[in-house]
Design a protein around this nucleic acid. Sequence first.
DNA 1: GTGAAAGCGCTAACAT
DNA 2: ATGTTAGCGCTTTCAC
Lengths: 360, 360
Amino acid sequence: MSTTLAQIASAAGVSVATVSRALTDSNHPMSEETRQRIKKLAQEMGYMPNLVARSLRTDRTYTIGIIADDILSPFVPPIIRGIQDYLKRIDYLGLIVNSDWDPNIEKDAINRLINRPVDGLIFVESWHHKPTNELEKSKKPYVFVHRLFGTAINNSVVPDDHYGATLAVKHLVALGHRRIAHIKGPEEWHSAQRRLAGYEAELEAQGIDVDPALVQKGDWEFESGYDAARNLLRLKKLPTAIFAANDKMALGAIYAIQDAGLGVPRDIAVVGYDNRDFSRISRPQLTTVSLPVYKMGQKAGELLCMNLDGQSEEVNEVKIRGRLYIRESCGADESLRTKDEYHEGTTIRRLLLGKQPESD
Amino acid sequence: MSTTLAQIASAAGVSVATVSRALTDSNHPMSEETRQRIKKLAQEMGYMPNLVARSLRTDRTYTIGIIADDILSPFVPPIIRGIQDYLKRIDYLGLIVNSDWDPNIEKDAINRLINRPVDGLIFVESWHHKPTNELEKSKKPYVFVHRLFGTAINNSVVPDDHYGATLAVKHLVALGHRRIAHIKGPEEWHSAQRRLAGYEAELEAQGIDVDPALVQKGDWEFESGYDAARNLLRLKKLPTAIFAANDKMALGAIYAIQDAGLGVPRDIAVVGYDNRDFSRISRPQLTTVSLPVYKMGQKAGELLCMNLDGQSEEVNEVKIRGRLYIRESCGADESLRTKDEYHEGTTIRRLLLGKQPESD
DNA sequence: GTGAAAGCGCTAACAT
DNA sequence: ATGTTAGCGCTTTCAC
């Protein structure tokens, strides 16, 4: 069927070993002349190495496994893209599996991948902190990115939510707000805790007392943001700004404010978190702090890469900072607006222009 | 390191061949007793087959390649998920590569994948109709899903845009509209052509003359929908409804109508196309026809699957029908609203409830 | 600088 | 019903 080393060898009148050396640019000494001759011949004969055979010999597949609960989860594709883009540099491919939040599916996937098809594993948005014993025993490196629950662990990449919350509050304070409410996420979640903490810390740093009445509970969903804002609107003394722990709740809050006959940002400013796609097309467009998903993916790729050939070196949790995307919902001056390069189809444009992406 | 067949063989006092037969449930006759004994032993010794070695022998990798221009393109993840879900049934994994609309990257990816790592290839949202010669020569099966340009070709899965447009118009007519405008997409695009054709065909079927003045040009983007609607609003005789060829333009149109002091659906009804995520959270929520991406992915998986072991059988282009998602923007009665199961995180819920997804 | 040969772990054709 | 053996295509040690 397809050309093999042996065929080239006999065609060139040399041994397979020589052909292999020539084609892999091995540093075993050999005459430059035969090397070139063989390369040319291989080219002509349309030789392409059988990667499976090579892997069997070298125990390297140049493939990593990516396990996510669901590729349809909004943050997963950009994380994966970040991983892929980093790994591409070292010519690695990614095998992607959905675990659907099911520990058994995940276990099966790990076992399957561990048996040679991959050199390492990245867990995306995993909700546990330890992979299976089998993985441990296999000695293959692995990395977590965007773990949802629990405390900091090694070899994991997470967003710097505390810092991000700080950015949001700073922005509001800079615009003159002092009664700043917060709609928080469920307490079990990493991000919810850190964003709340950042909110409180920054208020204190600005010399503003944290008013418990201004902190409302949400569950990440749109409706909970709507309800939380309605509660806030019932207060005797209204907040002048709301920092919602994610964009969905922020949008819900905006709708609640509008339904009460008030305007955003005219009467109340709103900041979100995550920089979801819709924050660019809502009315008003949402000012928000980005979850730096793409960068997180890249970093995860980098961490894994470091451990791919050597002894696995444990690395402390890595925090990635997002940034503030200033749009309309806080009433900041037009001149301050973040110019936004990353739209749908940006990749094409980026390539056409030969530019590196600036976004997270 | 890890257990091999040979180790089990010597531990069991039999030959490797016997062990292999026992463990692969080969239909080669053998005593049930030794088979069980070996299986038990393998289990105890923590045996896991080396998949690379197996692939080298059988020339089967149980992996397929998925080439998309960009995994971040909005329709790509659900298509991929559909593919993966179908392929999971036959225990196949997917290797995903971004080609970034670059023919050279794509060519490299094909060559890389062709050299054994995969048994077949699926092209997602490809813009060409023929893969490279190398692929052709390799005899590996391949399938296109959601090709963007050109005419119908074999082994490809596309949405039935003509039919979908028909649904949108039917809905508007049923609500009493007769002056129905259309904001179309760029002519080079498959979908734009088909949706326009469906619009015209359904109007005629309903005995309504197509009025060229009511057909505006757009470029798929939000802004073009806004501009197109403004043009429409300048007409002496306003349309009572607008069918936009995609959701982004539909949203732009809604904003234009609102900015003109009119209401949606009160004064003008708007239908979109694609069933993008934001259609569920816009105000008003957008009535739209779904692009059945998930189903298309599944179908692509199925087509590939058919050709995976046998001779490649050419199959005519397969069209997948979307459906109408009735929400608020056309003013249909509340009772007609499509109940929507597919939200973010639905996969978990689906699993928790043990339900099959109904959505596309 | 080149070649011979071993062997990665597995499957399957061919004995027995 | 079990064993022997060849070999998938490649890399790499060892010899010359």
